[in-house]
Amino acid sequence: MASPTRHETVTGPAPLLALAGVTKVYGVGEAAVRALDGVDFEVWPGDFVAITGASGSGKTTVVSILGCLEASSAGEYRIEGVSVQALSADVLAALRNAKFGFVFQNYNLLSRTSALENVALPLVYAGVGRVEREARARAALAEVGLEGREESRSNQLSGGQQQRVAIARALVNAPEVILADEPTGNLDSRTGRDIMELLSGLNRDRGITVLMVTHDPACAAWARRRVVFQDGRIRSDTRGEVAA
């Protein structure tokens, strides 16, 4: 368990995201599954967290709750001190739009849509005009090394390239936090390393907080903080040196 005192000295006075006794139950009665069971967890600005744990231990669930993709069943989730339970669907949408960027294992790009349009999608919902949208999407694609592939459709890109497009999409609206659920899960180790380099670069150079779920110890080694889930609880939460 993370102790606030320890963090204050390292990162600053207030947690960016804070779960207190958060529980998530799926289903009802006999079929009820406790995906999260009283999780206390704090994320500080600038953190680079790797979440690991056995399949079904609640990693996706916790990341989804943190990203406001899912509501908790019990407990409290605060973003910068504000309780999320009280927020309207529109405010949650605005948070997903501006504060968080998501990267998924299966990329989740819109099919039959160009890389540029995929990347610009968050800006559409942010109400950014077409010209600025396109300029910012181009810049984001350039940042992930996909200059020149703006017009390619998702199905014309390799897995690694698709995941770069997804990262560009997560980046384009200048989020504070990137939530990545097994971003390298579908990629070979070399491509996975490129993605990890990209994510850790964003954390290091742009100060973006990164939370990453992974099964791969090599990927987890990139993070400064490692959290292990087991049966819907946090088994350990440790800080370590970043791997080379």
Binding site: G67, A93, R96, N108, Y125
Partner: peptide, 16 residues
């Protein structure tokens, strides 16, 4: 449904 999920994840409001 997946497309809707993606749109919601990047900030579409229910009314969008």
């Amino acid at each position: 449904t997946r497309e809707i999920g993606v749109r919601l994840a990047v900030g579409a409001r229910p009314r969008d």
